[in-house]
């Protein structure tokens, strides 16, 4: 489902060159739940951003669902992200001015979906994370765990094949963290969604199918 071939990422300024990722080769088959671990600054998020087409690699090739995506023009990449990928962020990134239901339907706004259908799909996604009764609330009226569940609903509402989660439990206490993790595991099992998760938490990582460790931009074998 995801294939990275000798992917490197180098950040250059006038005076300094920083290698964030160094020759990463990674294969993630369909339906796998992969976690990426490593110390801060080792390139985990950069790797996730490259898989999520949020950033371009300096070298190497990224193939997702059989397509070499970094060659896509910007509009095509946007559509590809919209249809194939879902994102969950550590700090939730919900839009504070929108109600929960409006936040969840955000990915569908960029598809040709009627408002009625958007509403139905969003309610369904919220129901699957147990928050249908909170759909008219605003994000600031929710707890951290609830916010992350809304973010999950937003990530899955468009039924993407891949979910990319950047430390989804990082800002949550262990109880809420476990709740969120259970939802992700459930999604992976029942929905056969491929999930790549960056985490600092060893316990969370152990619940996934496979763990990849990074150190200073390189993969530890």
């Amino acid at each position: 489902m995801i294939s990275l071939d000798q992917v490197s990422k180098v950040y250059r300024t006038k005076t300094i060159e920083t290698t964030a990722l160094n020759n990463i080769n990674l294969e993630v088959p369909k339906g796998e739940f992969l976690s990426i671990m490593g110390p801060s600054g080792c390139g985990k998020s950069t790797l996730l951003n490259i898989i999520g087409l949020l950033d371009e690699p300096s070298h190497g090739q990224v193939t997702i669902a059989g397509q070499q995506v970094q060659k896509y023009a910007s509009k095509t990449t946007s559509r590809f992200r919209n249809e194939k990928l879902g994102f969950i962020f550590q700090s939730f990134h919900l839009i504070p001015d929108l109600r929960v239901i409006d936040n969840v339907e955000l990915p569908l706004l960029y598809r040709n979906v009627s408002s009625k259908e958007r509403r139905r799909l969003s309610e369904e996604a919220l129901e699957s994370v147990g928050l249908k009764n909170r759909m008219s609330h605003f994000p600031n009226q929710l707890s951290g765990g609830q916010k992350q569940r809304v973010a999950i609903a937003r990530a899955i509402v468009g039924k993407p094949q891949i979910i990319l989660a950047d430390e989804p439990t990082g800002n949550l206490d262990s109880v809420m963290g476990n709740d969120v993790m259970d939802i992700l595991l459930d999604l992976n099992k029942k929905g056969e969604t491929t999930i790549v998760m960056v985490t600092h938490d060893e316990n969370m990582a152990r619940k996934t199918n496979r763990l990849v460790r990074l150190y200073d931009g390189s993969q530890i074998k």
């Binding site: 949020l54 509009k75 946007s78 559509r79 992200r81 994102f87 598809r111």
Partner: peptide, 16 residues
């Protein structure tokens, strides 16, 4: 800008 980031991540094009 963060909202713009989220929208773009979920498929909004520059035109959107």
């Amino acid at each position: 800008s963060s909202e713009i980031g989220v929208r773009k991540a979920f498929g909004a094009s520059q035109g959107n």
